[in-house]
């Protein structure tokens, strides 16, 4: 890819991303998501914080992956299905764009929205840090892990959204998919020992746990990025399959 091509590509992705972000904030989806996210996390987080009486973010990092299971598919469900339903997909795909640019732009928009919601949880960090001495290593690892996890979830949600023109169905497909991925390392006792380690490796929470401990291992990063990339690739393929 030449430099000029790269620049147009980045411009295209940026244009699509900005439209999606604007649309999130125009339609109040963004505010609803952020408020609900902060409310749920805040409620469970603070109500247990004083019981445990330890200055730690661990509770938050256990809670957010579960909240993500609902919130991320809700954020991504409309990204492509709405365009399919309203027919605007025909406008978008007949513009001089690569399908990958469309997918990436939309992916980044949803990821950014989750990122903003996550950024606002730093308020809880500030309150805890004010109350007691906090170990920053796991906090950095935790946030990094959450962002990686969100990236994978968003990519899955986007794939689900590309499969149907019905947003509810897109949500359900996305939810089932991320829920399965999340549960894999929690059902190991039901799985024959021979497969247990493979299943554990496939489970997203296992890798999140590793990163959240503050240990950045290349195996975990490879897991996140390859899964994310594969899901985006499948979305591009799904978007390109327009024959009927």
């Amino acid at each position: 890819m030449t430099q000029a091509q790269f620049r147009t590509s980045a411009g295209n992705i940026n244009a699509i991303m900005r439209r999606e972000v604007k649309s999130y904030f125009n339609s109040a989806i963004a505010y609803v998501v952020i408020v609900v996210f902060l409310a749920i996390v805040g409620w469970f987080h603070t109500s247990n914080l004083f019981l445990s009486n330890v200055a730690t973010m661990r509770l938050l990092f256990e809670l957010v992956p579960i909240v993500f299971l609902f919130v991320v598919p809700a954020v991504t469900m409309r990204l492509l299905s709405e365009e399919k339903k309203s027919g605007t997909i025909e406008l978008l795909t007949t513009k001089p764009l690569h399908d990958a640019e469309i997918v990436l732009g939309k992916f980044l928009a949803a990821w950014a929205l989750i990122g903003v919601a996550l950024l606002l949880t730093l308020v809880y960090y500030i309150t805890i840090a004010a109350l007691g001495k906090i170990d920053n290593g796991p906090v950095v690892g935790g946030y990094l892990g959450l962002m990686l996890m969100a990236g994978v979830y968003v990519a899955i949600g986007l794939l689900a959204s590309s499969l149907t023109e019905n947003q509810v169905i897109a949500f359900i497909i996305g939810f089932v998919f991320v829920f399965t991925l999340f549960m894999l390392d929690k059902v190991l006792i039901y799985i024959p020992d021979a497969f247990a380690s493979i299943v554990e490796f496939l489970g997203i929470d296992y890798h999140f746990g590793n990163v959240a401990r503050g240990v950045i291992d290349s195996r975990d990063l490879i897991y996140f990025f390859s899964l994310l990339g594969f899901m985006l690739y499948l979305t591009v393929v799904s978007l390109g399959r327009r024959k009927w």
């Binding site: 649309s23 309203s86 027919g87 605007t88 025909e90």
Partner: peptide, 11 residues
């Protein structure tokens, strides 16, 4: 291109 039914972003 103006597609049939003229789809637009209403928002």
């Amino acid at each position: 291109y103006l597609p049939e039914l003229n789809p637009l972003y209403f928002d």
